[in-house]
Amino acid sequence: MDVNNPFAIYKWQALFDARDIFIDGLTTTLEVVIGALILSIILGIIFGVAGVFPNKIVKVINRVYVEFFQNTPLVIQVIFIYNALPHIHVMMPVLLIGIIGVGLYTGAYMAEAVRGAILSVPRGQVEAAVSQGFNYWQAMWYIVLPQSKKIMLPAMANQAINLVKNTSVLAMIAGGDLMYQADSWSGSNMYYGPAYVVTGACYWIICFALSKYIGKLEKEAEV
């Protein structure tokens, strides 16, 4: 047995035997992905629309949110939620911290995608709608947002894929996700090779499936 070979067969065998740990981690990662994706899309639409809202205060709120979360590292945001909030008696299970942390962070990028897509719709569309008696929200919902979809979707897809990979930040706070399990399992037995190859492959599969699915949505949006 070659101890110096990081990909020695027996190391793969050990990983296979410990597969339940990795499946656990993968499940947690998927839970965080789904939760954070939903949260980030909701935040993205709310703050994206706020970014074009004809009211200065609302626009400022959009800018503060976006600039704060885009310009500080995700790791620090998550560590802050994990370490600092308990001091003011806000304690959350680590899964929820992952969803909120990654969701808030990605939401800022989603908001920019939504805002940019809305701005790409010619101004005359809103004018035509309000000239027919639509109120602002009806004009947004029925006229502007459907047209901005085909610009919005690819930009949001990029962010969704970044979100999947960014959930690995949970490893920093013992989040029990795939990255954490790979770290802790391989840290105890030094079988880094198989652990990270398999973990990387798992992230790749999730991201690839997601981008294929969004590609399908984009095709539908073009009709």
Partner: peptide, 20 residues
């Protein structure tokens, strides 16, 4: 305003039809 906008319909230079 909503009532008046229904009573006074506008036609624009750039048509502004809803393309979707």
């Amino acid at each position: 305003l909503k009532k008046i906008r229904q009573e006074a319909a506008m036609v624009f230079q750039q048509f502004n039809l809803y393309p979707h």
